[in-house]
C-alpha cells in the first residue's frame, strides 16, 4: 500500500504494511489459515510466538500470532478462528484480498538450544505454537527429547492434524488427546494436564504452553508436579489488544501490558494473575 506522507522514521507498529492474501487454507471448522505476503518489500522477520495486528479495510484489527516457520521468508501464515466479528470477517477473506499488518511484535518463546522440550497446546492454542514446532522440526538436533501434547474437544477439532506425520518423522513425539473417546479413535483420551501427568521429564526440560488460562494453569501445575522447574515453564497470554504499542491499556493483566511484556511469560511471574478471577 502506498503511504501518502512518508513518516520520518517508519515504525511498522504504527504505520500498517499492506499484504495480499495468497492462499486460504481451511483447517478445522471455523478455522482457516491465511497465507499472505507484503505487496511491496520483504516478508518481515519474526520469532516464534510473535504477533501482528492483522487488519482489513472497514473491519478493524485483531492480534494474531504468526503460525508459519520463522525460516519461511516467502510468506507469513496466520491461523484465525472465527470468534467475534473481526476474526469472523478475516476468516472470510479470499485469495487476492488486501489486508494489512502492524507487527510483528512481542516477546517470543525462549527456544535456546539444549535440553528436552515439552510443548502443550489446548484447542486452538496450537496455532501460536506452530512456528516453534516448525522451528524444532527444522533444528531437531538442537534439542533433547521433544514431546508435543495437543488436546482438543473432539478429533475434528485437532488443528494441523495433517502435519502430525511430518512432525513425527522429524523426531517429535506427538501425543494428540481428545476430551471423550470416539469411535475409531486410537489416540489418548483426557485433558492435556492429565496426559502430562502420565509422562516423565528430565531435569533440563523446558515447557511451552498455550491454551485457555485454566488449561495453562493446570498444565503448569502438572508439569511442576512431574518435576519440571517452574522457571523453565513458559506460557503465552491472550488479552484484548488494540494498539500493540503499549499505549492503549486494553491488554493489561495485572502488572503486565501483554503487548509490551508478553505474549510469552515465565509461568511463575503470571501464575497469581492467572488464578484470580476477572483480574
Amino acid at each position: 500500500m502506498t503511504v501518502a506522507t512518508a513518516p520520518e522514521s517508519f515504525d511498522p507498529m504504527i504505520t500498517p504494511v499492506e499484504h495480499v492474501v495468497t492462499d486460504v487454507i481451511p483447517e478445522i471448522p471455523d478455522v482457516v489459515t491465511l497465507r499472505m505476503v507484503p505487496t511491496t518489500g520483504d516478508v518481515a522477520p519474526f520469532l516464534p510466538a510473535q504477533v501482528s495486528m492483522v487488519g482489513a479495510f472497514g473491519i478493524g484489527e485483531a492480534a494474531i500470532s504468526i503460525s508459519s516457520s520463522p525460516s519461511e521468508r516467502a510468506y507469513h501464515e496466520y491461523t484465525i478462528r472465527h470468534a467475534g466479528a473481526i476474526t469472523s470477517a478475516l476468516t472470510h477473506l479470499r485469495r487476492g484480498d488486501r489486508l494489512w499488518t502492524r507487527g510483528p511484535f512481542g516477546r517470543p518463546w525462549d527456544l535456546h538450544p539444549g535440553g528436552d522440550l515439552v510443548i502443550a497446546a489446548g484447542g486452538i492454542g496450537v496455532a501460536p505454537l506452530r512456528s516453534a514446532i516448525l522451528h524444532t522440526v527444522e533444528h531437531r538436533d538442537l534439542f533433547g527429547a521433544v514431546v508435543l501434547v495437543v488436546g482438543a474437544r473432539t478429533s475434528h477439532d485437532l488443528l494441523y492434524r495433517r502435519e502430525y506425520e511430518a512432525w513425527r518423522d522429524a523426531g517429535i513425539d506427538v501425543i494428540a488427546t481428545i476430551d471423550h473417546d470416539e469411535a475409531g479413535w486410537s489416540g489418548a483420551v483426557g485433558f492435556v494436564p492429565t496426559v502430562i501427568g502420565d509422562l516423565e521429564f528430565g531435569a533440563d526440560t523446558r515447557a511451552l504452553i498455550c491454551g485457555p488460562d485454566i488449561m495453562m494453569r493446570r498444565t503448569a501445575d502438572a508439569l511442576v508436579a512431574a518435576g519440571v522447574d517452574p522457571d523453565r515453564i513458559q506460557v503465552t497470554l491472550e488479552r484484548n489488544m488494540q494498539c500493540g504499542t503499549g499505549r492503549c491499556g486494553h491488554c493489561q493483566l495485572g502488572g503486565m501490558l501483554v503487548c509490551r511484556d508478553g505474549p510469552v511469560a515465565d509461568y511463575p511471574s503470571v501464575a497469581r494473575a492467572l488464578s484470580i478471577e476477572e483480574w
Binding site: G84, A85, S88, H92, D97
Partner: peptide
C-alpha cells in the same frame, strides 16, 4: 448480542 456477523461477503 454479539456484533453482527455481516461482513460475510466482503467481495462486492
Amino acid at each position: 448480542r454479539p456484533a453482527i456477523d455481516w461482513p460475510t461477503a466482503i467481495e462486492q
